[in-house]
Amino acid sequence: RRRVRAILPYTKVPDTDEISFLKGDMFIVHNELEDGWMWVTNLRTDEQGLIVEDLVEEVGR
């Protein structure tokens, strides 16, 4: 599965499916959606939700 790492921290918008995360958090990407959004699991918190791909970088497989 594709893995990405947060290059900046992010605080979710209330009442959305987004998740908050810290710089350096690692994610497993489950689905890539329209407009640059991805459905992921945060490996640090085990939380699932939406993040925007502009805030992450690819991690070598």
Results as ranks from 00 to 15, higher is better:
38 M>W: 05
57 E>M: 06
52 V>N: 14
44 R>N: 07
15 D>F: 07
35 D>M: 09
2 R>E: 14
17 D>C: 10
39 W>Q: 10
53 E>F: 06
36 G>M: 01
54 D>V: 07
37 W>R: 15
16 T>H: 03
57 E>I: 07
37 W>E: 08
38 M>F: 08
16 T>V: 01
27 F>G: 02
42 N>Y: 00
11 T>L: 08
35 D>S: 10
1 R>P: 06
59 V>M: 13
58 E>P: 14
7 I>W: 05
25 D>L: 02
9 P>M: 06
44 R>L: 01
19 I>F: 00
58 E>H: 08
14 P>V: 10
24 G>L: 01
42 N>T: 01
34 E>T: 10
53 E>A: 13
54 D>R: 15
46 D>K: 15
51 I>M: 04
59 V>A: 13
3 R>V: 10
50 L>W: 11
56 V>D: 01
21 F>N: 02
12 K>Y: 02
5 R>F: 05
57 E>A: 07
41 T>Y: 06
43 L>N: 05
41 T>H: 10
6 A>H: 01
3 R>G: 05
42 N>P: 01
49 G>N: 02
60 G>P: 13
35 D>Q: 14
44 R>H: 04
57 E>T: 09
58 E>T: 13
51 I>H: 02
32 E>F: 11
27 F>V: 01
39 W>F: 12
31 N>P: 02
30 H>I: 08
16 T>R: 05
17 D>V: 08
36 G>N: 09
40 V>H: 02
47 E>C: 08
12 K>Q: 08
10 Y>G: 02
18 E>R: 06
55 L>Y: 15
23 K>P: 12
48 Q>D: 12
49 G>K: 02
39 W>K: 09
13 V>K: 14
29 V>H: 01
8 L>A: 15
57 E>V: 10
19 I>T: 02
55 L>E: 03
56 V>W: 02
28 I>M: 13
30 H>Y: 05
48 Q>F: 09
57 E>F: 04
58 E>M: 06
21 F>V: 05
28 I>K: 11
46 D>Q: 09
5 R>Q: 13
48 Q>L: 07
14 P>G: 10
21 F>S: 01
56 V>L: 04
20 S>N: 09
12 K>R: 11
56 V>N: 01
35 D>L: 07
48 Q>G: 06
30 H>A: 05
32 E>T: 14
10 Y>W: 05
47 E>R: 05
54 D>Y: 08
26 M>C: 12
27 F>K: 00
48 Q>P: 05
37 W>G: 12
26 M>S: 09
54 D>K: 15
11 T>C: 13
10 Y>V: 03
10 Y>H: 15
54 D>I: 06
30 H>E: 14
5 R>K: 15
8 L>F: 10
33 L>E: 09
25 D>C: 02
61 R>F: 14
57 E>W: 01
2 R>W: 06
18 E>G: 05
33 L>Y: 11
12 K>W: 02
2 R>V: 07
9 P>E: 10
44 R>F: 04
12 K>H: 08
55 L>P: 01
35 D>R: 12
30 H>L: 10
10 Y>N: 06
55 L>Q: 12
42 N>S: 07
48 Q>N: 09
17 D>I: 07
10 Y>I: 04
18 E>W: 00
54 D>E: 11
61 R>E: 15
53 E>V: 11
51 I>Q: 00
27 F>P: 03
59 V>P: 08
55 L>T: 08
41 T>E: 08
27 F>I: 02
53 E>D: 12
56 V>R: 02
10 Y>T: 00
47 E>H: 07
57 E>K: 05
30 H>G: 05
45 T>C: 03
34 E>S: 13
9 P>S: 12
16 T>F: 03
58 E>N: 12
33 L>M: 10
24 G>W: 04
42 N>G: 03
7 I>C: 07
13 V>N: 15
25 D>K: 00
11 T>P: 04
22 L>F: 09
31 N>L: 08
9 P>L: 03
31 N>D: 15
18 E>A: 04
32 E>Y: 12
38 M>D: 02
48 Q>A: 11
33 L>W: 09
38 M>T: 03
19 I>A: 00
60 G>Y: 11
14 P>K: 13
14 P>Y: 06
46 D>C: 14
48 Q>W: 06
21 F>D: 02
4 V>H: 03
58 E>I: 07
15 D>V: 04
45 T>E: 00
36 G>C: 04
45 T>L: 02
46 D>L: 10
11 T>S: 11
19 I>E: 01
56 V>E: 00
3 R>I: 11
51 I>A: 05
47 E>T: 07
20 S>M: 00
21 F>M: 04
54 D>A: 15
57 E>C: 08
47 E>Y: 03
3 R>Q: 11
18 E>N: 03
52 V>A: 15
18 E>K: 05
48 Q>E: 11
56 V>P: 03
29 V>F: 01
60 G>A: 11
14 P>H: 09
31 N>F: 08
32 E>Q: 12
14 P>I: 09
28 I>D: 14
39 W>N: 09
1 R>S: 10
50 L>A: 14
22 L>E: 14
33 L>V: 12
33 L>N: 08
21 F>K: 00
27 F>M: 09
4 V>D: 01
34 E>M: 08
27 F>S: 03
25 D>A: 00
51 I>C: 05
4 V>M: 11
42 N>Q: 03
4 V>L: 11
24 G>C: 03
15 D>Q: 07
46 D>W: 15
45 T>K: 00
10 Y>P: 04
30 H>W: 09
29 V>K: 05
55 L>V: 08
49 G>T: 03
1 R>D: 15
26 M>I: 12
32 E>C: 11
53 E>K: 14
60 G>F: 07
14 P>R: 09
10 Y>Q: 05
40 V>W: 01
39 W>H: 08
32 E>A: 11
41 T>C: 05
38 M>H: 02
1 R>G: 10
40 V>D: 02
26 M>K: 06
15 D>A: 09
12 K>P: 10
43 L>Q: 14
18 E>M: 05
58 E>Y: 06
51 I>Y: 02
56 V>I: 12
9 P>R: 06
23 K>R: 10
15 D>M: 07
14 P>F: 06
41 T>Q: 07
46 D>M: 13
37 W>H: 15
17 D>S: 12
48 Q>S: 13
52 V>E: 09
12 K>N: 06
43 L>G: 04
46 D>H: 14
34 E>Y: 08
4 V>C: 05
16 T>I: 01
7 I>P: 04
46 D>N: 14
6 A>P: 00
34 E>R: 15
48 Q>R: 11
38 M>Q: 04
43 L>S: 08
2 R>N: 10
38 M>C: 07
